[in-house]
Design a protein around this nucleic acid. Structure first.
Lengths: 141, 141
DNA sequence: TATTGTTATACTCTATAACTATA
DNA sequence: TATAGTTATAGAGTATAACAATA
């Protein structure tokens, strides 16, 4: 039998779980022609009308250089409207089409999270989430 | 204040935690000029002398097409020896240099996992690992 | 000086298709 | 027919450097 020397490493399990989970989410979002990052941005704009691109980047930990092509794609599809607030920042809002698509994306997110939670015993769910959050929000990570 | 509509999604927390953790591991392995995938392969070969490339791929969930360049790099650096067992499979073993590097990589893995575990309350650690494993080994994921 | 937004570029991981050779 | 290994290629996320315009 093959020995897996990584099996009991939580970091390894974390990565495997993340990849498997993201693949499932990407598959669900495919019918909307949205990537997970794009769908996330739509939800963030909907929850924060008038937010700027750089604020989204800080919230989702996406570098400015990588936000630009993502936002351009959403703008080119007329999902997001940009209104200049000063010479360099733009207030972002969802267009009607963006709101419709965001609602569909949110349903896919919800179904996806429900699927995921089915595999975690109810008593473990709250600490599981809290521990994951600690792993990425702790600055000493 | 900015609202984060994704904050309580475990799938989102899983991804953020995985990315943050992998970046830290990659930084640690940099001094060995190893990527996380390459270091993992070294540990697997060490634990399973004579294993084949396709068996490693199945264990780590790396597609054959992606194993080829990884193995070539390890072989080019004289870390891994390949001995034909039949016309298409090769038994893999670590070279002395490969064993030395693998030992160093394992110490970096260990230190990295210890850092990670520091952020998880001791009582949560076993279920945390088990739940992560369930997320990627469950075929219905 | 610092920030916003952009372009260009490169690396890594993942994925598919197509192929050779062997079992 | 199925498997092992390879090549080529493409999509996606992440990273740095450099830049223009603005605060």
């Amino acid at each position: 039998m093959t020995i897996d020397p990584l099996k009991d490493f939580p970091g390894y399990a974390l990565r495997r779980a993340s990849v498997a989970t993201m693949q499932r989410l990407a598959g669900g979002l495919q019918v909307l022609d949205l990537r997970a990052s794009e769908a996330s941005i739509l939800l963030v704009i909907e929850a924060n009308p008038g937010i700027t691109q750089s604020e989204i980047g800080r919230l989702l930990d996406i570098a400015g250089a990588n936000m630009a092509p993502l936002m351009r794609r959403l703008h080119d599809r007329d999902l997001v409207e940009r209104n200049a607030v000063d010479g360099r920042s733009q207030a972002l809002h969802l267009s009607p089409a963006g709101r419709a698509l965001s609602a569909k994306a949110r349903r896919i997110f919800r179904a996806h999270e429900d699927e995921l939670l089915k595999k975690i015993p109810p008593a473990d769910r709250a600490p599981f989430l809290k521990n994951l959050q600690a792993l990425y929000s702790d600055p000493t990570d």
